[in-house]
């Protein structure tokens, strides 16, 4: 019964040490180089198209030139058994010249390994669609297009998927303001300046 009274209080870590003293002794973790047979064969095959092989928190990833992505994914599928495209997504960094990070996550059933591919692309750049290599890329890339406005060249069906077809703007871009969209909507529909 005494135990049942605990839920009322908020979670208390056993040692209430705030972040500052804890972070002081070890420096903030940073990516470390990733080296394996796979990285060597990739480096040999693609040379300077792959700029970095890194691991962070035990998770390997590589950074490549956007035009090399298709070739790398195809190579990984055919030669290294990375036959499952887990996810395609992106992140927006509006301050950068190449504002988007494209992220591909691949998995190999035989190796039981998961790797990530990253590439920076500028607005308007059309990366090659992976749909010819992995059928699952179809919807995943449609979602990236829907949310970030990155169009994929050679995609079989480049339409919005979650948002309505006539939607303006790309919601997951950092400069897409929820507040502005809301104000516009209430102005048009409720004839008031702001609902906030």
């Amino acid at each position: 019964m005494a135990e049942e009274q605990k839920p009322a209080t908020p979670p208390k870590p056993p040692t209430p040490a705030p972040a500052a003293p804890k972070a002081a002794p070890p420096p903030p973790p940073s990516p470390t180089p990733w080296e394996s047979d796979l990285t060597r064969s990739l480096a040999e095959k693609f040379g300077d198209r792959i700029t970095d092989f890194l691991t962070y928190a035990g998770q390997p990833y590589l950074v490549a030139a956007p035009d090399a992505l298709f070739g790398i994914v195809e190579y990984l599928k055919l030669e290294a058994d990375f036959d499952y495209l887990v996810d395609v997504t992106a992140a927006d960094y509006p301050a950068r010249a190449e504002r988007f990070d494209l992220v591909y996550i691949l998995y190999s059933f035989t190796r039981n390994e998961r790797i990530r591919l990253k590439a920076s692309v500028a607005e308007g750049y059309q990366p090659a669609s992976l749909a010819p290599v992995h059928l699952t890329a179809n919807w995943l890339e449609r979602e990236v297009y829907d949310m970030f406005g990155i169009e994929f060249a050679g995609h079989p069906d480049m339409r919005r998927i979650l948002m309505p077809e006539d939607w303006e703007g790309y919601p997951l871009r950092k400069d897409y303001s929820i507040l502005k969209m809301d104000e516009r909507w209430v102005k048009e529909n409720l004839q008031i300046d702001s609902a906030q």
């Binding site: 040490a17 972040a19 804890k22 903030p28 887990v86």
Partner: peptide
Amino acid sequence: GPIMGKVPKVIKPPAGEVYVS
């Protein structure tokens, strides 16, 4: 044993990215 790890009061993960499934 305890049911909470040593989590800082303000959760501020160091810069980085992970995929967990």
